[in-house]
Write a protein that binds this DNA or RNA. Structure first.
Length: 597
RNA sequence: CGGGGAGUAGCGCAGCGGAAGCGCACCUGCUUUGGGUGCAGGAGGUCGGGGGUUCAAAUCCCCCCUCCCCGACCA
C-alpha cells in the first residue's frame, strides 16, 4: 500500500447520501469525473472486473457467446426501430465532421439484430444467444447515488434469437436460470418480480431486484403465495360483478336513480366527504361516507413521440392517487404532461373540481379510462360538471360507460394480492437485472428473417437480457457494508487478505514482507499495508474501510509466535502460529463458499 | 422538467461589507509506536462564472452555471 494509487478519506463526501456511494468514494474505489460519470481507481477497478468475470463465467457456462460492439453507433438502425425519437433526451447524440448523426449506445438491440441478420440465414443457425459486457450511455435526467444510476455505466446485455415462441420461452428460461446462478454467486439478495417492458417493447418481462432501501424501484409482494411484481406491473384484483349482490341489483335498476345535489365549496375529495357526512340529507344510513366512495377524474395530457398531444381522463376511487410512473409504463412510448390552465380553458365543459363521467369520453373529445375497481354496478359520488354540484349514486354501466379501464392507481400496502387475495407488502429494490421477451419488434423493423425448414422466410423471435454490472458493484457494497466500512464477499473483494504490519519493529516488518510473498506464491491475493508512516490505528481503520474479507495483523503477537487472523464481517480474531499461517489462509480462502470454482 | 437545499484549499466546514480562515489530508523535523499520537514549521485559493452597487464585495443586487435531496425517466 505504500505505493498503491489510493487515498482514503476520513470524512464522508458531502455530495454522497447513499452509504455505498459514500464508502466507495471514501475508501478510494471511485471518484466522480462528471455528473453520473465515474473514474475507477485500482481497488474499484479490481472489484468491477471481479463482478464482470463472474457474470462472464456464468454466461459462458450457459452456452452464450461473447461478442463486443462499439459504443459509438450510427443513427440509421435506431431510426429504423423508432428509438432515435422514442429514447428522447436520454440519448447522447453527436455528429461527425460531416454532420452525420451518431449516438452513444444506451442498449444494443438494433446492432445485435443487424449483426445476426448479416450472419444467420437459416433456421439451422438458431437458436442463438450472444452477449457483451459494455459501457452504456444514457443522458439521465437525474443521475443518483453514485454508481447506482450513472450516465455512463457497465452493462452485460444478452440477446436471444429463436424461430418461434416456444424457442423464445426456452431461451428466456435459460437466461433466467443463468441470472439466478449469477446473482447467487455475487452474493446479492434478490427478488424476481413481474415487470413492464418500457421503451424496450415486447411482452413478458421480469426484473431481478435487490431488496434494499437505497433502490429506486418499489415492488409489491405477497408473503402468502409468493406473488411479486414491480408496482408498475401490479394488476389490481377486481371482484367479479355477479359476486357482489349490490352491484347486480344496481344494474337491474333496483337501486335509486342517481341524483344531483348542491355541494357548494367542495372542490377536493376531502371537502366533499366532509360535506356529505355533515349534512343530514346526504348522510348514508349504514355508515359514514369515505373517500373510497367517490370517483375522481384526473386529467392528463399524453405527448406522443411524434409530438402530438392527446387529452386523457382517468377515473379513480377518490382515496387513491394516480401513480404517474404506472401511467407512463402503461402508455409508453407516450409521456405524461400536466393538464394546464390553457387546456381547461380550451374545454369549457370540464369544470375543475367537479368533473364527472358525463363530460368525458371519446365522443366528447377526451378519452376516458377508469380504474379496474370501477366495475359495472358500482355506485359512486362524483362531479356533476357544474360548479359546486355533485351527483350521488351514479352507477357504472347503468348511468355511464367509460372507454375502457386502465390500471394506474397507486398501489398500497395491504391491497389484495391478485393471485390469492391476501394483503400485499411493499418494499424498495435496486434493479440489478431485467429480462425481456421482445418478440419480433426488432426483427420486423430491421428485416431479420431466416429460411425455415420449408425454405420460406421466418421472422426471428428475440429476447433481451440485461445485468447492470457497475450497478451490481454498488448493490453488493450496499448489501454488505456496516458502520465501519465496506465488507466484500471474497470473490468480489479486491484481495483475499489485507495484511497489516502493525509495528515498525524490524522483525515484524521482515516477517510481514516474507508472508506477503509466501501468500502471493500460494495464489492468495494480498493487499499489504507496508506503510512506514502510518500508525497501527490508521491501518486498522483503513483495513475496515476497504473491506477485504480477511485481515491479517502482524504485531505484538509475533514475539509469542502468533499472528492475528481477523474476519472482517464478524470481527472475530483467531491467533495462528506463525508456522501455520500460510496453510491456514490457503484453507480459509478455499473453504469460503463464495470462492467456489 | 417541477419543488427544496448548497457552491470558499484534495476532503469536511466557518466567515456574510473593511488584510481569505479552521479541522483532516499533504510536505519537513522531532515525538509517539496495537485503534485515525502530540508539537513545531511549511506548501496549497481566479471564494462556481459574468455583470452591477460601493472608497472597499467571499459578503449586497441581477443573470448564468454546477451539485445534492424529493418527485417525473431507466440496467
Amino acid at each position: 500500500m505504500s505505493v498503491l494509487f489510493l487515498r482514503t478519506l476520513r470524512d464522508d463526501p458531502a455530495d454522497a447520501d447513499v452509504a455505498s456511494h459514500r464508502l466507495l468514494v471514501r475508501a478510494g474505489y471511485v471518484r466522480r469525473a462528471a455528473p453520473g460519470i465515474f473514474s475507477w481507481l485500482p481497488l474499484g477497478w479490481m472489484v468491477l472486473r471481479n463482478v464482470e468475470r463472474i457474470v462472464r463465467e456464468e454466461m459462458n457456462r450457459a452456452g452464450f457467446q461473447e461478442v463486443h460492439f462499439p459504443a459509438l453507433l450510427p443513427r440509421e438502425p435506431y431510426e429504423a426501430t423508432g428509438r432515435w425519437t422514442e429514447y428522447g433526451d436520454n440519448l447522447f447524440r453527436l455528429q461527425d465532421r460531416r454532420g452525420a448523426d451518431y449516438l452513444l449506445g444506451p442498449t444494443h438491440e438494433e446492432m445485435f439484430t443487424l449483426l445476426v441478420k448479416d450472419i444467420c440465414t437459416s433456421y439451422k443457425d438458431l437458436p442463438l444467444s450472444i452477449y457483451q459486457i459494455q459501457t452504456k450511455y444514457r443522458d439521465e435526467a437525474r443521475p443518483r447515488a453514485g454508481l447506482l444510476r450513472g450516465r455512463e455505466f457497465v452493462m452485460k446485455d444478452s440477446y436471444s434469437f429463436d424461430l418461434d415462441r416456444a424457442g423464445l420461452q426456452a431461451s428466456y428460461d435459460a437466461h433466467r436460470a443463468a441470472y439466478v446462478r449469477t446473482f447467487d454467486r455475487l452474493g446479492l439478495p434478490y427478488v424476481i418480480v413481474a415487470a413492464t417492458s418500457g421503451a424496450m417493447g415486447g411482452s413478458a418481462s421480469e426484473e431481478f431486484l435487490a431488496p434494499l432501501d437505497a433502490g429506486e424501484d418499489t415492488f409489491a409482494f405477497c408473503a402468502g403465495c409468493g406473488y411479486a411484481a414491480n408496482t408498475e406491473a401490479v394488476h389490481t384484483a377486481v371482484p367479479a360483478v355477479p359476486a357482489v349482490p349490490a352491484a347486480a341489483q344496481a344494474l337491474a335498476g333496483e337501486t335509486p336513480a342517481a341524483r344531483v345535489e348542491d355541494t357548494p365549496g367542495t372542490p377536493t375529495i376531502q371537502t366533499l366527504v366532509d360535506e356529505l357526512n355533515r349534512r343530514p340529507d346526504l348522510r348514508r344510513p349504514d355508515r359514514p361516507w369515505t373517500a373510497a366512495d367517490t370517483l375522481k377524474n384526473v386529467l392528463v395530457m399524453l405527448v406522443h413521440p411524434d409530438g402530438t398531444t392527446e387529452p386523457l381522463a382517468v377515473g379513480l376511487p377518490g382515496d387513491r392517487d394516480l401513480d404517474v410512473k404506472r401511467l407512463e409504463a402503461t402508455i409508453t412510448p407516450a409521456v405524461v404532461a400536466a393538464f394546464g390552465e390553457a387546456e381547461f380553458a380550451a374545454r369549457p365543459q370540464l369544470v375543475k373540481g367537479y368533473i364527472g363521467p358525463r363530460s368525458l369520453g371519446k365522443a366528447r373529445g377526451v378519452r376516458y379510462l377508469v380504474d379496474p375497481r370501477v366495475v359495472e354496478g358500482t355506485s359512486w359520488v362524483t362531479g356533476a360538471d357544474a360548479p359546486g354540484r355533485h351527483v350521488i349514486g351514479l352507477v357504472a354501466g347503468r348511468d355511464f360507460r367509460a372507454d375502457g379501464t386502465i390500471d394506474v392507481a397507486e398501489v398500497r400496502a395491504g391491497d389484495p394480492c391478485p393471485q390469492c387475495g391476501a394483503g400485499l407488502e411493499l418494499r424498495r429494490g435496486i434493479e440489478i437485472g431485467h429480462i425481456f421477451q421482445l418478440g419480433s419488434k426488432y426483427a420486423e423493423a430491421l428485416g431479420l428473417a431466416v429460411a425455415g425448414p420449408g425454405g420460406q422466410p421466418v421472422v426471428v423471435t428475440m429476447g433481451s437480457y440485461g445485468i447492470g454490472v457497475s450497478r451490481a458493484v454498488a448493490a453488493i457494497a450496499e448489501s454488505t457494508l456496516d458502520d465501519r466500512g465496506l465488507c466484500w464477499p471474497r470473490e468480489i473483494a479486491p484481495a483475499d487478505v489485507h495484511l497489516v504490519a502493525a509495528s515498525k519493529d524490524k522483525s515484524v516488518v521482515e516477517y510481514a514482507d516474507r508472508l506477503a510473498l509466501d501468500l502471493s506464491q500460494a495464489n492468495i491475493r494480498v493487499l499489504y499495508d507496508d506503510r512506514s508512516d502510518a500508525s497501527a490505528g490508521v491501518k486498522f481503520k483503513d483495513a475496515e474501510l476497504i473491506g477485504v474479507p480477511t485481515v491479517v495483523v502482524i504485531g505484538k503477537g509475533l514475539a509469542d509466535g502468533v499472528v492475528e487472523v481477523r474476519d472482517r464481517a464478524s470481527g472475530t480474531t483467531d491467533l495462528v502460529p506463525v508456522g501455520e499461517v500460510t496453510a491456514h489462509l490457503v484453507e480459509l480462502c478455499r473453504a469460503d463458499p463464495d470462492a467456489a470454482d
